[in-house]
């Protein structure tokens, strides 16, 4: 046999070491969960109540791209929505996004950011599912999403005039969420 016994011992030991490392990690997580320092379900955006992080994204057909400066320069609130053609919950939330003005009883422009998507896939998706977006930017490599603290698509951020993130939700928007959370958030910022 070409492998010596010593090497075989080391090889045979490696699964135990890997499992042990994972076990210690899990133990720390559980410890943190009971102490409140670790919460995997806490996907609150780090940008909440802060100015939008700087970015400048190219256009995604059929819309026009936008930058952080344009968001901050607005006089009215706007909803920024991260979506992707490969994301099934994005299809689910599309009716809610399309019906946003009628549910809120007031206009609220939605600016979309296509997250890690091929441009032709994203435009095809908007053609099939409907296009609720006033402007659409492409975040092909997902860098902007990282700065925003996006934990998955879809995610929506309400931006108040001046470019401050006023409200945030991770997951698909539903009609209930629009009337019970987004509406009050809009009223809170007094716009």
């Amino acid at each position: 046999m070409s492998t010596s016994l010593g090497r075989r011992r080391l090889l045979a030991l490696s699964p135990l070491l890997v499992a042990g490392g994972a076990g210690i990690g899990f133990w720390r997580m559980l410890h943190g969960m009971s102490g409140g320092s670790f919460d995997p379900h806490d996907v609150d955006a780090p940008v909440l109540n802060k100015p939008v992080p700087s970015f400048d994204l190219p256009a995604q057909a059929p819309g026009r791209g936008f930058s952080a400066a344009e968001l901050s320069g607005l006089r009215a609130p706007v909803l920024v929505n991260f979506f992707a053609s490969w994301c099934v919950p994005c299809v689910v939330e599309m009716p809610a996004l399309l019906a946003l003005p009628s549910m809120l009883g007031r206009p609220l422009p939605v600016w979309g950011i296509a997250y890690k998507d091929r441009t032709e896939d994203a435009s095809g998706f908007l053609q099939r599912s409907g296009n609720p977006y006033t402007r659409i930017a492409a975040d092909c490599d997902g860098r902007t999403a990282i700065d925003w603290g996006v934990s998955g698509v879809p995610e929506s951020f309400l931006i108040r005039p001046g470019g401050i993130v006023a409200w945030h939700t991770a997951g698909p928007l539903s009609s209930g969420m629009v009337t019970e959370e987004l509406g009050p958030a809009l009223r809170r910022i007094g716009a």
């Binding site: 045979a12 499992a19 076990g23 133990w27 559980l30």
Partner: peptide, 28 residues
């Protein structure tokens, strides 16, 4: 989380025990 700790100890016994046995006996 308390339930999780019990599970983790159980997993450590079952998985860790069998892998330790593997590290000890498999080379021979």
């Amino acid at each position: 989380p308390a339930r999780g700790v019990f599970i983790l100890m159980l997993l450590a016994l079952v998985i860790g025990g069998s892998l330790a046995l593997f590290a000890w006996r498999a080379p021979v």
